[in-house]
Amino acid sequence: MKKLLFIFVIAIFVVACKDDGSKVYFDAGIKKMYESTDSAQRIANYKNAFADFNKAIEINPNYVDAYMNRANIKNELGDYQGFLQDCKKASEIEPENTNVYIYLARIKKTRGDINGALAVLQKAISIDAKLSKAFSDRAEIKSGQKKYKDALADYDKAIKFTSDKELLKYLYSNRGLTHLDLGDKNSACEDFHNAKDLRNPNAQGEIDSFCK
């Protein structure tokens, strides 16, 4: 029984200051979008933020971050086709922007489009062959498919290519669980101890469960 610990984080795209006026609307949209309120008010905030992102795009039709945050709102409000259209537009403007593909793949995965998510992750990897986030996301999918050897290979690459300790502590834990699935307890425990050294809050429980 595997519990993957990878943290799903919706990317918030940040841009340099623009002097065409679009950033004023973009910043207003971001503020409204992430205000902490009850669920009913949150929907109203999303709709107000949506209007701000529309204005930012009207001023600057190449504003990728506005497209991506508007896509996020469309997804939250149930407009999946609109979400896909905004992601497509963002990728057309900045075809080398791997953040767009990572975000798109994660949403596809949450909606059960596993093959679609894998295809998008492969696109990201074709742009950046050392993109740790893409390998870690693909490893999680492969593990869920019980393709443990493939998952292990991707976790190896994700760990090799990242210097982000916050990500690394979960990658070690996930790779340890994958080693267990493949019957390699020693390697699993080594990974759990590495995760503990990086202050993964779940690592001690994994050590207690599997390494005694």
Score class of each variant (00 low, 15 high):
102 I>P: 02
39 S>Y: 12
76 E>N: 12
64 V>G: 05
82 G>R: 03
189 C>V: 08
52 D>W: 13
95 P>F: 01
87 C>N: 11
1 M>F: 09
95 P>A: 08
81 Q>L: 13
146 K>T: 06
1 M>E: 11
114 I>Q: 10
73 I>Q: 12
194 N>I: 02
210 F>H: 15
38 D>L: 10
42 R>Y: 02
146 K>G: 00
199 R>V: 10
77 L>C: 06
201 P>L: 05
5 L>M: 10
190 E>G: 09
101 Y>D: 03
110 T>N: 08
159 I>F: 04
76 E>F: 07
84 L>W: 05
34 Y>L: 02
205 G>S: 11
2 K>F: 05
35 E>P: 01
82 G>F: 07
40 A>C: 04
11 A>T: 14
202 N>S: 14
20 D>W: 06
117 A>S: 14
94 E>V: 06
37 T>A: 04
187 S>E: 08
210 F>A: 02
212 K>I: 06
112 G>A: 04
42 R>I: 06
103 Y>V: 08
185 K>S: 11
5 L>C: 04
206 E>D: 15
107 I>F: 01
192 F>Q: 02
123 K>Y: 11
36 S>Q: 14
147 K>T: 03
157 K>D: 10
41 Q>K: 12
161 F>R: 06
77 L>M: 13
102 I>W: 07
170 Y>G: 03
4 L>S: 11
164 D>F: 00
159 I>G: 07
208 D>P: 04
98 T>A: 04
205 G>C: 00
34 Y>C: 00
164 D>W: 02
109 K>F: 15
150 D>V: 07
127 I>P: 04
81 Q>A: 13
75 N>V: 00
41 Q>S: 11
95 P>R: 11
101 Y>S: 02
55 K>S: 13
203 A>E: 00
49 A>V: 03
58 E>W: 00
60 N>S: 10
107 I>Q: 06
7 I>Q: 15
172 Y>H: 05
38 D>P: 07
105 A>V: 03
41 Q>D: 05
14 V>A: 11
167 L>S: 08
186 N>G: 10
21 G>A: 09
46 Y>G: 11
177 L>G: 03
107 I>T: 11
184 D>Y: 01
33 M>K: 15
8 F>P: 09
43 I>T: 11
97 N>G: 05
99 N>T: 13
72 N>F: 11
109 K>H: 14
143 S>W: 09
53 F>G: 08
131 L>A: 01
204 Q>D: 11
181 D>R: 13
40 A>D: 10
82 G>D: 03
207 I>M: 01
88 K>M: 12
99 N>G: 14
172 Y>V: 01
173 S>R: 06
106 R>D: 14
104 L>C: 05
